[in-house]
Every structure is written in C-alpha cells, then in structure tokens.
Design a protein around this nucleic acid. Structure first.
Length: 497
RNA sequence: GUCCCCAUCGUCCAGAGGCCUAGGACGUGGCCCUUUCAAGGCCAAAACCCGGGUUCGAAUCCCGGUGGGGACGCCA
C-alpha cells in the first residue's frame, strides 16, 4: 500500500487537511505501506515556499513523518509538481496525438458567459464544448497565428463512470454532466486534475485518501487515467470537518490551522488523537490512545460517512489528558515561551528547567493548555505583598483579628525557619494551628493569601515547597528571582499592619 | 439550477433486522472529594429528521420528502 498527502502550498496547514494527512499516515503506518508527501504547486500565483515549509514544519510537529517527499527525495521523485513539468508535457502530447485531448481557444470571458447562460437556462454549468469540434488543422493554424490555447481532455460521451469508494461504496457519475477539463493551461502549466493523475500513477500510489470535496473530480481523473493507460488507484473520500454551525470550518470559528492550535498550547499528541476521533472510532469504548495504537487499529472501512464538527472543548479534554501524561521536563521546556509571552522573562538552563519541571504538576493537573501554565504558576514569580491585599474584600478578610493572628503566628514561625519542604510546611502549619487554635479554612486561607499573594491557586502542599525551592535557585539558572516564604510572610505582615 | 455525498443525544462516536428499556465520550446539571480555584470521582438529563413501504419484527433494508454539505475554475 502506498498512500500520499498532497497539499498545495498556498497557506497554513488546516486541521481538516491535517486530519486527511493523519488518516493516510495511520493507514501507511498500520500496514507496511509507504507515505508520500507531494507538493502540488502548479498554481504559481498562489504557491509559496514559505507555505511549503510551514506545512512541512506542522506535519513534523504532529509527528506525521513521510517516506518520500520534497525534502528527502525518493525513488519516484521529484515530489514537487513544479519540478515535474516535463512529465506532464509529454503525457499531454500523448493525449493530443491520440485525439483524447484538444486545443481550446476560448477566452475566459467567453467561458464565463457560457457558464452564466447555462446556469440561467437550468443546464449543468459545464464547458460548452466550443473548441471540441475544431479540426487539428484549424487548431494548428490558430497557434501559428499566435493564439495560445489551453489543452482540454475529451470526456467520452454517453457513459457512466463508476467507482467503488472504500468509505462510500459505489459512486456513479454520468459523463454528460462532466465538462471537458483543462489539463494544460495556456501558459503551459498543468492543471490539477491532470497532474494528480500523472503523479499518482508514476508514484505508484495505490490508495487515494482525500477530502470529499474531491469526489466529483474522481470521474475525470479515472477517465484521464484510462486514456493514459494507467490503472486508477483505489479511492476513499473522507467527509469534511465543519465548524460548530455546521458550516465549513473557517476563521470566524477561531483557530483553524495546526499552527494556531500549537501556539495556543495544545500538544501534538493531543491534536493527533483528537483528529483521529472525527469520523472514526478506535472501538472498544476507548478514545485516548497513543498514535501507534491508533495506527494499529485504524481501518478505512470503519471510517464514518458524515461530516464531523470540530469540537475544541473535546480537544481541550484530550489535551488535559496528555498534559498529565507528559514528562514534566518536556512541559517545562515547552512552557518557556508562554512565560515570556506572559511577561516573565527567563532563559532557564538545566537547573532552571528542572526547577520548573518540579513545580509543573501544579499546572498540568489542572490546566487545559500550555498557555495557561504561567498563570497557574504565577505564585512562583509574581509575588507582591501589597497586591495581595489590593482587593478590598481580601484585605478586609485578612485584617480580621483571627486572620491577622494566623499571619502573625506564620511570620513568627517562619522567621527562623529553614526553607520549607512539604514536611516542614506541614509541621509549620501545625505549629500555627496550635498557636492560634484555627483550623481548616480559617487557618489555611490566610496562609495562602500571605504566602502566595492570592486567594486561589494550586494546593499549598505543592505551591509552598515549590516557592522555597525556587528561592534558593542561583540567578545563573536563568529563572527570575523568587521570594522565599520567610520573606513573603515578613513582607505581608508589614503591609497588613 | 444540474450532478454527487450525507442524516443516532447540543457535539464526536457505537450500533452492520430481533441482544435497543438505543451504549460510550466531550459538554451541561447535581452530588462527592477538598484549606481556595481548578483538576478528579460518582450520578442524572439528553438522540434514532419526516412519510411511505419490505418483514413476524427496522435505528438498522428500499423509495420519496425535508435538511445539511460538496462539485460544476486556464484553484487545488
């Protein structure tokens, strides 16, 4: 089995296309198959190298590696259509010579007018066939006179094109509703329907798995394939991915590109796992599976037929799962840009990263995305006694005698104390408890506000030791200075009185 | 307009004629856990688009309608 993903480099990799790429990849990896990446850059106007490298980058980020492609080459290359022009040219000549293609001199304006007229009369809006009956001699005469024709494929009349779609079953089109497609433009560049057929055949692609938007191109491609003497590949058309309003996923629904989801702080394994769940089910009542397991279970005939709505809430749930599973050191590294973005300047070395990693469970146990990590860990870098009391109701609460007594006892207990680890923190809390007679919320809430600077946040058992571990970090670790609990308690008490 | 595809909880899936009193997951609501916010656990509400057939029996098969989507480019 040889499958391919064939994006045109005209913009960002969209999640819908990423899912198509994923399904192809799962198919290849689940069997002994090959996964080919081909760049369809025949539209010179819109294709850019920037888009191409962005798409490659996003696919790599997702972990969808390819066996043959523009960057690594392969036995059936080149893998950029712009580098295969000579091939298309020679096949076009073949078609012309056999009478399966003809020159078309119709102007764009003429074509538009024909289309409008057809629509107005309720006829299928297909090519009127104006140049179909031009003789070869007439055509040559016009070319010699300086006309620059396109080349069209001559679609056979009066027959059905039937193919067995792996996901949809038998699909049938009558050739009378198919207009003769342009296969080579007037400027000599190949058109999509032609280039794919040539490339899929030459690259020995066995299964074409692509979006449903290509289903009506399929009969043209089969016909072209037959005329060229190729055996058409097996086709599988995937239902499209929609936005919440059941309209095609677009900008107004928020993030749509893989790059946007990455920068919002979704993990690649989460996006991959979630994408696999749109239009397919791994079975067995489980949804959260590592990618190799997805590949092992994936099968085209288990793929659903109806369009799926992209649900970011569910993606977030999947992401939470992978955040919890992930190596904290990796999450620490990935979080650095988000800290910087949140205004926490840092360039941690290994000690800095290990410190962040040691605190990371506070964030990963409760957050949806990486971009929420800095806020959850703000207890570390963002302490200011004044600001802790800036909120009127918090201030009032802390100034109440019993809360104040807790703060006083806390500052006292900490004054001589060494840095707190979990056990020392518990012992210290117990000491404050016996000194003040407070317990539960009335004990811990003042401690929380005094030591973390806020009324809510991670468990103190986790946060307090993390703060004091951070307080001893040398500045060379590349992480902003962290005020220790002892200093925090003292500062807080000063501000409170 | 013409052609093609699709149709189970709000959403994603399971269901391939009796196992369906339609199952799971996300989300939602409630409860629990808890020193806070989250997270987590438990429970609950929530669907076979409509109408005709076929059949002893239909979410499952057929036809029609309706609704949604796609295509009809010298874009891919």
């Amino acid at each position: 089995m040889r499958v391919r993903f064939a994006p045109s480099p005209t913009g960002q990799l969209h999640v819908g296309n990423a899912r198509t790429a994923l399904f192809n990849w799962l198919l290849a990896r689940g069997s002994e198959g090959g996964f080919i990446l081909r760049i369809e850059d025949t539209d010179v106007e819109r294709s850019t190298r920037e888009s191409e490298s962005a798409i490659l980058r996003d696919l790599r980020w997702l972990g969808l590696d390819w066996d043959e492609g523009p960057d690594i080459g392969g036995p059936r290359g080149p893998y950029r259509q712009s580098e295969r022009l000579h091939l298309y040219e020679s096949y076009a000549k073949e078609l012309l010579a056999a009478g399966d293609a003809y020159h078309c001199f119709c102007s764009i304006a003429q074509l538009d007018a024909d289309r409008q007229a057809a629509l107005a009369e309720g006829r299928p809006a297909r090519y009127a066939g104006t140049c179909r009956r031009l003789s070869v001699e007439q055509a040559h005469a016009r070319i010699e006179a300086g006309d620059r024709p396109a080349i069209r494929f001559r679609v056979p009349e009066g027959r059905d094109v039937v193919f067995e779609d792996v996901v949809r079953g038998e699909v049938r089109f009558h050739t009378d509703v198919i207009g003769d497609p342009v296969i080579v433009r007037a400027d000599g560049s190949p058109a999509y329907n032609f280039a794919v057929v040539v490339d899929d055949a030459l690259m020995e692609v066995t299964h074409v798995v692509r979006g449903e938007d290509h289903i009506s191109n399929t009969p043209r491609q089969i016909l072209l394939s037959e005329a060229l003497g190729f055996t058409p590949p097996i086709f599988a058309h995937l239902a499209l991915v929609m936005g919440p309003d059941h309209a095609p996923l677009s900008k107004r629904h928020g993030a749509t590109s893989v790059a946007e989801f990455r920068s919002k702080g979704y993990l690649p394994e989460a996006l991959v796992n979630y994408l696999a769940l749109i239009g397919w089910s791994p079975g067995g009542g489980v949804e959260l599976l590592p990618v190799d397991e997805l590949a092992r279970r994936f099968s085209l005939d288990a793929v659903g037929l109806s369009a799926g709505v992209f649900d970011e809430e569910k993606l977030a749930w999947v992401n939470r799962h992978y955040l919890k599973m992930a190596d904290p050191l990796r999450i620490a590294e990935l979080s650095v840009p988000y800290f910087i973005q949140a205004g926490v300047k840092m360039s941690p070395d290994h000690r800095g990263l290990e410190f962040l990693a040691s605190a990371m469970v506070m964030a990963t146990s409760s957050v949806d995305r990486l971009d929420q990590v800095p806020a959850r860990l703000s207890v570390l870098f963002d302490y200011a006694a004044e600001r802790a009391l800036a909120d009127a109701s918090v201030r009032e609460e802390m100034q109440a005698p019993r809360a104040r007594a807790v703060v006083v006892a806390l500052a006292g207990a900490l004054a001589q104390a060494p840095r707190l680890d979990r056990e020392r923190f518990r012992a210290m809390a117990a000491q404050v408890k016996t000194e003040t007679g407070e317990k539960g919320r009335t004990l811990f809430h003042p401690i929380r506000v005094a030591l973390t600077g806020r009324a809510e946040g991670p468990e103190l058992d986790l946060a307090i030791p993390a703060v004091d571990r951070g307080a001893d970090l040398p500045r060379s670790a590349g992480v902003p200075a962290i005020l220790g609990c002892r200093e925090r308690a003292a500062a807080f008490l000063r501000v409170l009185v």
